[in-house]
Design a protein around this nucleic acid. Structure first.
Length: 109
DNA sequence: CTTCTGAGGCGTCAAGTCAA
DNA sequence: TTGACTTGACGCCTCAGAAG
């Protein structure tokens, strides 16, 4: 688990999106399931299988990277929102404090 | 119009994590 | 231990806007 993921919950107060798992039963178009290893014989078949496995791995990682970036952008947006909220709260509290100080000063006179 | 530059997105690799 | 998944890092490409 990487650090910004750990921060995610603190930033949102929600369950992290990355924990939501949907069963991946569907394979992308064009990806064909291989025959079981026991049915492979020739070096050519072995090479084809290796190539197929590599392409499948690259495809999955490509999609994983896209998803990872999407989640990271969402996380950053969430942090920015939080900053805006906290800045507003801070502003309000400062104004409130100023008003109370004024009130106190006039009473003292 | 051309060149430069910074931002943003993508694909890939490598390393770390976790569940089986 | 191992396979699947996640994510940081790197290099490449594209595009918009500034500068000449």
């Amino acid at each position: 688990m990487k650090q910004w993921c750990l921060d995610w919950q603190a930033a949102t107060g929600d369950m992290p999106a990355y924990q939501i798992r949907t069963p991946t039963t569907t394979l992308p178009q064009g990806v064909v399931m291989a025959a079981s290893p026991g049915t492979l014989h020739s070096p050519q078949q072995m090479a084809e299988e290796a190539t197929r496995k590599r392409e499948l791995r690259l495809l999955k990682n490509r999609e994983a990277a896209r998803e990872c970036r999407r989640k990271k952008k969402e996380y950053v947006k969430c942090l920015e929102n939080r900053v805006a909220v906290l800045e507003n709260q801070n502003k309000t509290l400062i104004e409130e404090l100023k008003a109370l100080k004024d009130l106190y000063c006039h009473k003292a006179e």
